[in-house]
């Protein structure tokens, strides 16, 4: 497979996959309920393969692993930190087996769920070790990319990027933060704006930077434009399908595949290099986005 960054350099727009959690909930609700989505890595890697296959068939060039909450600090909320190695290794192996070099395996790495001092009680060294332990496993298991995502704290995401680069300087690191729209512009919950994110993610050694989750795809065009003002790195956008509403006890996301596909053209026009989905997006969304972007 041609290296990811080479393809981006040539101007190609790549398609990443969509939501993992909602598909897993649909397929393994009883296993996950009251626990974390990563528990199924231990018992049902076949489900991970099935999800990866759905996104591969939908045309995704990048498939994420079910390791978003796979750092030991996060797993400790469920008394699973001792299973860190197994949870992360199995997830990478499952996706790798399915994609067979037809897509890149991207190891997802989400927030630790703990706060750094002084707001929480975690030391920066412990946070760094936390990510080091998870990312060593996914890189050794053969992940092509590390994707540090949904972060709100610049210090935490920076530590994760540095941990990935210390293990393997040549493995591309994608780093995304989640911004909320405020009357004063876009900020993460911890108060990081896009300029600060762009500068610090780049300085920490990320290869591709951007935003995921959020309030729907329309805001993402604005976010991408603003990123472009402050960085020359490639941009990744993985939007959710809008904010969920509760209907008949289920979370329903308002944005359709057609709507997101249309808006993806705007992202492409702004110069976004990787477009994928977050919460509420499905293989249908990814298929539609892929078709729209590739038709340009």
């Amino acid at each position: 497979m041609e290296p990811l960054l080479e393809r981006i350099k040539k101007g190609e727009i790549l398609i990443a996959d969509g939501a993992m959690g909602s598909l897993l909930m649909a397929k393994a609700k009883d296993l996950i309920k009251g626990k974390c989505p990563e528990v199924i890595n231990l018992s049902r890697p076949d489900i991970l393969e099935e999800v990866a296959r759905l996104y591969l068939e939908a045309g995704a060039d990048i498939i994420q692993t079910n390791t978003f909450g796979g750092s030991p600090l996060k797993l400790s909320d469920y008394s699973l930190e001792e299973k860190t190695e197994e949870i992360n290794r199995t997830a990478v192996e499952a996706v790798k087996k399915v994609v067979e070099k037809k897509a890149y395996v991207s190891a997802s790495c989400g927030p630790s769920g703990k706060m750094l001092k002084p707001y929480g009680n975690v030391d920066p060294d412990a946070m760094y070790e936390n990510f080091l332990r998870q990312l060593r496993v996914v890189i050794e298991a053969g992940a092509d990319i590390v994707c540090v995502e949904t972060m709100i704290d610049i210090q935490e995401i920076t530590l994760a990027i540095k941990a990935a680069k210390s293990i393997s300087p040549s493995t591309p690191v994608m780093a995304t933060m989640t911004f909320d729209k405020t009357p004063r512009g876009f900020f993460t919950m911890m108060g990081v704006n896009i300029e600060k994110a762009a500068r610090e993610l780049e300085a920490a050694g990320a290869d591709i930077i951007g935003s995921n989750c959020g309030n729907g795809i329309e805001d993402m065009t604005t976010i991408a434009k603003e990123y472009k003002e402050f960085t020359s790195l490639p941009i990744i956008i993985q939007s959710n399908a809008g904010l969920p509403e509760i209907k008949d006890d289920e979370a329903v996301y308002p944005e359709t595949p057609e709507f997101m596909a249309e808006k993806s053209k705007e992202l492409a026009a702004v110069g976004v290099s990787i477009i994928g989905g977050c919460c509420g997006t499905t293989p249908d969304h990814i298929r539609a986005i892929g078709q729209a972007v590739r038709s340009l």
């Binding site: 706060m115 002084p118 707001y119 929480g120 709100i152 909320d180 405020t182 009357p183 004063r184 512009g185 900020f187 993460t188 919950m189 911890m190 108060g191």
Partner: peptide, 12 residues
Amino acid sequence: GEGQLFLPELIL
């Protein structure tokens, strides 16, 4: 709620 301050301030 207005984006005038953020989680760090709220936590303190």
